[in-house]
Design a binder for these strands. Structure first.
Lengths: 178, 178
DNA sequence: TATTGTTATACTCTATAACTATA
DNA sequence: TATAGTTATAGAGTATAACAATA
């Protein structure tokens, strides 16, 4: 049926490739298949092993590296989600005793959010296991391959930083905000 | 603040790296940052340019490469989502006139789902633009780099096929299902 | 008036499970 | 009894917008 039998797993998103030889698309679909799979394994394991989610884990990770704490706004920026979401996740973590909000002396609108001692312990426990998972998931690559891809991704990431959400003009450029 | 200034974008998920030198974790976070960014650009543009979503686009793509059509169950497998979701997406696309369900002669429980002529036209229009986006997003890599990563990802993907959702036993192996 | 954070709401995406109609 | 598909429901994850308190 398909003119391109490809080489491995047939029944996943990568098979979205039509019958073409378009390098970028094929690369993208394969890369997406890998990250989707890894992310899904991590999410599942975080849920079954620690009854938590990736956004919660990420929030704790941000706090772990800032012992001084962060404001809600700073968390929102770093996690790249809107403020309402940070409020919700923080509420949950605070109810579980893993983080605490402390009013700021100089600006009574803002809080400092920090890990509690229990939060620190819990996060470190999770982070250690999480790292083993990632090591396991990337065992398909040896150290050299990992280093190589890591270096290449730096270039891609830098490029992506300059790409706009809005598509580039395909028809008349129309004076470009004149 | 952070002992590892890293090299580029400071305020995103990659900054989830703590101050360690753990190769696999650093690689994973950088890879995730890239794919998240690309996926988010694609989702946004699909919405703003074509008022559609990635799952809808993916379903159309599956049908486009199978002119004979697919059953709901086959779509479910290929898109790696449960049946109820396929029903929902198919309902929407059918309402928009892009796909059609045809009862099967031999098994009256099942349908053949196919693109309508309008669906074919619409998908091809979207696919062409989508490919340009992906080319633009991967312009940070030259042809050699793309080829190299594509090849390496094959190995990673193959490895991931053998990784279980459940974490490997970390304590007593306990007879391993005897 | 602008900013910090919260609340309310809604939509996408996905899963599970009960259900219908065939087989 | 098993299978194909649907329906109903729930929950994660995210966004927008109106709002309160403070700056």
């Amino acid at each position: 049926m398909s003119a391109v039998p490809d080489d491995d797993l047939p029944q996943d998103l990568e098979s979205r490739v039509i019958d073409d030889h378009h390098q970028a698309i094929k690369l993208w679909l394969r890369m997406l298949a890998c990250t989707t799979r890894i992310e899904s394994v991590v999410r599942n394991r975080l849920r079954s092993e620690f009854a938590t989610t990736l956004p919660r884990f990420d929030l704790l990770a941000q706090l772990e590296r800032e012992p001084e704490g962060l404001t809600m706004g700073e968390l929102s920026q770093r996690l790249m989600v809107t403020g309402g979401n940070v409020t919700g996740v923080t509420d949950q973590l605070e109810a579980e005793g893993l983080v605490k909000r402390t009013p700021r002396a100089n600006d009574r609108r803002a809080f400092t959010v920090q890990l509690t001692p229990a939060g620190k312990r819990q996060f470190r426990r999770m982070a250690a296991v999480h790292e083993q998972w990632v090591i396991e998931l990337f065992a398909g690559w040896n150290a050299d391959e990992k280093t190589q891809v890591y270096a290449m991704l730096a270039g891609l990431k830098k490029h992506l930083g300059g790409v706009d959400m809005a598509p580039p003009r395909r028809s008349k450029p129309k004076k470009e905000t004149a």
